[in-house]
Design a protein around this nucleic acid. Sequence first.
DNA 1: AGTGCAGTTGACTTT
DNA 2: TAAAGTCAACTGCAC
Length: 500
Amino acid sequence: MQVVWFKRDLRVQDHAALHCAARRGTVLPLYVVEPELWRQPDHSARHWEFVAETLAGLRQDLAQLGQPLIIRVGDMTDVLNRLLQLGCLDALWAHEETGNNWTFQRDKKVIAWCRSANVPFHQLQNHGVVRGLASRNGWADNWDRIMSRELTPPPALCPLNIAPGPIPDASDLGLLPDPCPERQVGGRLAGVERLSSFLSHRGETYQRAMSAPLAGAHACSRVSPYLTWGALSMREVYQACERRRAEIRSKGSSWGRSMRSFSGRLHWHCHFIQKLEDEPEIEFTEFHPLYAGLRPEQPDQTRLDAWANGETGYPFLDACMRSLRATGWLNFRMRAMVMSTASYHLWLDWRRPGQQLARFFTDYEPGIHWSQVQMQSGTTGINVARIYNPVKQGIDQDPTGVFTRRWVPELVKIPDQFLHEPWKADNAAEVLGKLYPEPIFDHVVAAREARDKIWGVRKEAGFQSRARAIQNKHGSRKSGIKNRGQRKPKGPSNQLELPF
DNA sequence: AGTGCAGTTGACTTT
DNA sequence: TAAAGTCAACTGCAC
C-alpha cells in the first residue's frame, strides 16, 4: 500500500505526493497527530484547533475521492511500525517539510526508519523551497517556473476497510487553554472563500490599507493560515493572483498596484522559508555570530509578561498585542513593531518573544517566522536595525484611535488628542497606574540605547566580511547590501545648465 | 513688487 | 517592513 503522509499540506488539490502515490497503487491517506510536536514551545492550541478543522474538511474531500483520511495519534515511527506489521506499507509519500527543529529531527528519524525497514520514502518538493540548494543565484526565476506549472489534479482512490480514527481535541493532547475568539476558521472551504473574496473585491485597497491594523484586517488577503497548513497550495494562490492581474489591467490603478504588491509578497513567502531550509540553526542561533549574547540570555519575566499581555503602557502597542491574542493575526507592519519593541526597547533575547509570537500567530510558518524575528531584532547582519516608534506608529496607523480604543477600553477617559501618549493628558493621574499601566520603558531613551548597541557591533572587527557571506548565502539577488552603492547614476537633468 | 524671515516640505544621509 | 537628522528649496506673510 502507498501511504501518503499528510503534514502541513492538508488538501487534495495540487498535492503531488497524493497524485504520484495514486499512480503507483492503492493509497492509504494518513495524518499522524504527534503529541510531542504539539507540546513544543512554538505550538499552541489555536494551531491545533485550526488544523483539526482543516482535517475534518480534508477527510471529507478524500472520502469524495474514494477513501477518507485515516488519523492516528502517536509517534510517527510507532505508527509506521504498526502499518508495516499489518503489511500495509509498501512505500511512504510526503512533501518535503521546512519546519522547526523538532520536525526536522523527526523527519531524520523517519528517513532512518524507512531505510532500516527497507521502505521507499518519496519526499516531493513543497511550494517553491529547494532542498539541498547550492546557491541563491537564479532562485527567483526558478520559483517563477515552479509556480507556473500546471496544478496537480486530485486522483481517484480505492476504498479501504480501515477505521478512520477520531480527531482529538486540544485538551486530549494536553494543550493549555488558548482562547482565540476571533480566530480564522480552518478548512479549505474557508481558505478558498478568503482567496476569492480578496481577489474579487477586498483586495482593491490592499496596497493602501494593509499597514493599518483595522483596515488591513479586511484589505489583506488573510490566506496565510491556509498556506501554512496547506489547505491552499502556493501554486494555486499565485496562479489565481496572476490571472487576476491580467484581468484587471484595464481597471483602475489601485487594483494594479495592489495585485503587484500581493504577488511580490507571495514571492517573499518562499524566499524566507528557504533561509530556514538552508540553515535550520536560525531557529536558535543568530544569523550573524557577533550578535550572539548581546542581550541577557534569560529574559526579564516581568517585562516579557507585560509585553505579551498587552500591558506595557503604550496604548497602540498593547492594542496590537491584545488584538493578536484574540484574533491570531496581525498585519505585517504591526508584527514587526511588536517584535521590535521586545528586542530593542525591552532588550529581551529574541528566542522567548519569538516563541510567544509563534504561539499567537494562527499562520505560524517557521521559516518566515524565525527569519523575521531575527530581522526585527537586528541579528541578521544583512539588514539595518529598524526600530519602530510605538507612539509614531499609533499616530500614523490609527489616527482616529478606533482600533486602540477597541482593545484598550480602560483609556475611555483619555481625550483623543492624547490617546497614544496618555501620560500627557490633564487627567493622566486618574487613569495611569490605576486602570492602565504607566509606560514600562521610555521609548525615546530605550530606542537610542538599543540603536547604539546594535550599531556598536557593526563597527567590530570582522563584522563586514561575515555579513557579506550571509548576504551571499541568504540574500535576495534583487535587493540587499550586495547591490547597495551600485545604483544607477542619475540621468541627465531635464533643466538646461548654462553658465549664464 | 521686492525683501527678509520663520516655518514647511522633500530628498537624502546617518544611525 | 524605521526614525531622526541635515540641508536646500519653497511658501506664506509682514513690511
